[in-house]
């Protein structure tokens, strides 16, 4: 499977998974789908039939609320049946909303932001000590970079010269209530990492060739961070950069129909849709009351007098 096909399938599975379960965070999944597609199609070494194979590259999805993206990638690569994806969130399932290490192919559970980089640093240190040659990859959210623990780990990674560690920041400029700049700005993101001593690469986080090149390069003696410029909700126009879709799931009606058809509008050749093979023929369309293309950010209705909210720089 090509990375383009895998990325698309992650999006399609997750629209279905959130639709069926009522689960959150579809915007965060769509943001990171290309990163996950490239990692799991072209970059990471793993053996689906032997999930704990010691030579595998380690992977930590630190922004664990996008767990649906990792589950879909693992299922598509054969770690468990694709059909199981629809148990997401369900009673008796293995697929909790946030990443669970009880699922084959998952090394660590996450869900509380700001833990993943530290755990990845620990894994990279252990690899160095034991002279193992696999690499450790970790994906962080940009809002997650608010957490002080991220920067504690960032210092440790440089201190121990972890050139076997690659961090990828899904830089979509949005977090839970608003744009990052209007919450707790991490700008300038790339320069912060550089200031901490990391090898910094900046790429378009939806450009697979660029992602692939960045993920496979490294600099001796220092860790690499890829600041991947992304769009939260990417591929589904009415979800793009609308904070509502951090929470909302595609409901039956225009939301689901239009989401599916938006994906079919950008389906790469050879990617099959197991749910709606040809898209939806006569989709329900949003009416004038639909909650669409409105500004749901906190900053839209929050006007403190004693300080000025920072400008958004998307």
């Amino acid at each position: 499977m090509t990375s383009e096909q895998l990325a698309w399938k992650i999006c399609r599975h997750d629209v279905e998974m959130t639709h069926v379960s009522g689960g959150s965070h579809i915007g965060a999944v769509l943001s990171v789908a290309d990163i996950m597609g490239v990692l799991y199609a072209d970059v990471l070494h793993f053996r689906p039939e032997e999930p704990k194979w010691d030579g595998r590259d380690r992977f930590v999805l630190s922004k664990g609320h996008a767990g649906g993206a990792l589950y879909a990638a693992l299922a598509e690569q054969g770690f468990f049946p694709v059909e199981e994806l629809l148990t997401y969130y369900r009673n008796e399932s293995r697929l909790s909303g946030h990443v669970s290490h009880k699922v084959p192919g998952v090394d660590v559970s996450t869900g509380s932001l700001g833990h993943g980089l530290g755990m990845a640093v620990g894994m990279a240190i252990a690899a160095k000590q034991d002279k193992k040659t696999h690499r450790v990859f970790v994906v962080l959210g940009d809002g997650e970079c608010n957490e002080g623990s991220v920067w504690e780990a960032a210092q440790a990674a440089v201190n121990y010269q972890l050139d076997n560690l690659v961090a990828i920041v899904d830089h979509n400029h949005m977090q839970s209530l608003d744009f990052c700049e209007r919450t707790l700005s991490s700008a300038p993101m790339a320069r912060k990492w550089a200031g901490f001593g990391w090898n910094v690469m900046e790429v378009d986080g939806h450009d697979h060739a660029a992602l692939r090149a960045a993920m496979t390069s490294s600099r001796q003696g220092i860790p690499t961070v890829i600041v991947a410029h992304t769009i939260k909700g990417h591929r589904i126009p009415f979800m793009e950069q609308d904070i509502l879709w951090h929470y909302r799931f595609p409901h039956t009606g225009w939301e689901y129909d239009c989401a599916v058809n938006a994906l079919h509008g950008c389906k790469p050749a050879g990617a099959e849709d197991p749910y709606t093979p040809n898209g939806i023929e006569s989709p329900v369309l949003p009416d004038e009351n639909a909650d669409i293309f409105r500004d749901h950010t906190m900053g839209a209705t929050y006007e403190p007098a004693w300080f000025r909210l920072q400008e958004v720089t998307k």
């Binding site: 977090q175 707790l184 004693w306």
Partner: peptide
Amino acid sequence: FWEALPDQFLNAGIA
């Protein structure tokens, strides 16, 4: 809350 009393409200971020 943030609409009614913006000067008594803060978002500390994920921190």
